[in-house]
């Protein structure tokens, strides 16, 4: 019981470290490579979806918890964002930029899903190579 509690407390440290890094990266990218109508958030979310699927597939829970906390829950969770996505979508709809709103929405959802699938497929392939080697 005590061991589990200690492990849970440690998790927060790694999630915090990763979360700060992820937000920092999102801030830097937004600053350096801004796109019109906040479309950089679309790319950030797609890339994050790819990487989290790759990470979670390659490194199963139980064996690699620390890595999953730091890079997955922390860094990639902090890097990607849903709140800004919702607000950006709201802003586009309020200003009646319907086409852009539809593009923003479909690119994010379909792109994120395809990216996650790609990450999963690549992760599986890399994992089986590692297992057989």
């Amino acid at each position: 019981m005590k061991e589990i509690e200690v492990k849970a407390m440690q998790a927060y440290r790694w999630v915090a470290l990763g979360g700060a890094t992820g937000v920092f990266l999102r801030g830097i990218i937004s600053e350096l490579y801004p796109l019109a109508n906040d479309f950089h958030i679309v790319w950030i979310n797609i890339i994050g979806s790819f990487l989290i699927a790759l990470l979670f597939t390659m490194f199963p829970a139980g064996l690699y918890d620390r890595l999953r906390w730091t890079l997955g829950s922390g860094m990639l969770g902090g890097f990607t964002t849903m709140s800004t996505f919702s607000l950006d979508l709201l802003k586009l709809m309020e200003t009646k930029q319907w086409l852009l709103a539809v593009q923003y929405l479909t690119l994010s959802i379909i792109g994120g899903l395809l990216a996650a699938w790609l990450g999963y497929a690549l992760g599986n392939r890399l994992k089986s190579k590692g297992d057989s080697a």
């Binding site: 994050g48 979806s49 969770g77 902090g78 890097f79 964002t81």
Partner: peptide, 11 residues
Amino acid sequence: GAFTTFSTFSY
């Protein structure tokens, strides 16, 4: 921004 997440959603 960090509280919400898109990557976990996609996954």
